[in-house]
Write a protein that binds this DNA or RNA. Structure first.
Ligand code: FES
Ligand code: FES
Lengths: 144, 144
DNA sequence: TAAATAGTGGACAATTTTATCCAATACAAA
DNA sequence: TTTGTATTGGATAAAATTGTCCACTATTTA
């Protein structure tokens, strides 16, 4: 569904969001441990999220990653997926044709469109904040 | 969503099905041209479909690939995806946790489950035959 | 200002996926 | 039975993704 990088990105964001709700900055190491991901690789992903203004990063001692509490409910899964995997999820053809196009549809276009729209809607409506809050309550897990 | 191999596999199956409805066997070359795929790679995929008894393959002159007309409506997208990509689509966690498990769910488990079940249902209910018939009528396309 | 800390950026390595090549095999037809 | 044709299977190769290493920069604090 998503690339590994994107999976890490979403999990990392949720963790950073949760910690930010508790007014804590987290280090790369913290993130990698919390989501059980290779830290150097995770670093690259956090860089991309930072450049897309989804997370903040601060250098130096007392540095680390964080998200603005005030903007947290504005961040949807959507933006993370887009920042890392681009728009293939939304615009790509399910059977790999160069373009998904209703005028020259692949055999599963109609069936796919329904599901893709559903997915899109879900990603657009799900805020990182709610996910972070559930995680904070111990209802969900970022590794296993 | 699916691997490239799986995309080719689905497209190839639809083409073979359509030709089989017209009582024609098709060669590897025919398939590769019809779905615009690298033929040697496509060959590997057809082998897997053949071993999963989704398509027939015959060697020698007058050989080629085909599907039994009588069994055509029994073949669902489902079996093709399973033959090539395995069960990751159905059982994998959307955020890449080792197992998808409602007892220890990832933060998007519930949202994902809805969509995955939808996808699953679609794959289980869509027969290659109907797709092949639409394709035959020129309503859909296997390349572009 | 020096030292310690934490992210950054670039090069590089491993793995997985996608793609190619070719000799071997099987088979139909002449 | 020979010949030509088409798939098979194994070895490689190329490309993309995932993962690692390390020197550098920025920043805080002593
Ligand atoms: S053309 Fe294939 S999904 Fe739209
Ligand atoms: S645990 Fe992640 S989708 Fe079920």
């Amino acid at each position: 569904m998503f690339s590994k990088a994107c999976e890490y990105g979403i999990r990392a964001s949720i963790f950073i969001a949760e910690q930010s709700l508790l007014d804590r900055k987290v280090s790369l190491k913290d993130v990698a441990e919390a989501i059980e991901s290779p830290s150097a690789y995770t670093s690259k992903i956090l860089q991309r999220l930072s450049k897309s203004n989804i997370i903040n990063s601060d250098k130096g001692p007392t540095g680390g990653f964080s998200m603005d509490k005030s903007e947290l409910e504005k961040v949807k899964l959507n933006s993370i997926v887009y920042a890392i995997d681009g728009d293939t999820v939304y615009n790509g053809c399910g059977l790999g044709l160069k373009k998904c196009n209703a005028d020259k549809p692949c055999p599963v276009h109609n069936q796919f469109k329904v599901i893709r729209d559903e997915l899109k809607k879900m990603l657009e409506n799900t805020t990182v904040k709610t996910l972070a809050m559930d995680y904070e309550k111990g209802l969900t897990f970022l590794k296993r």
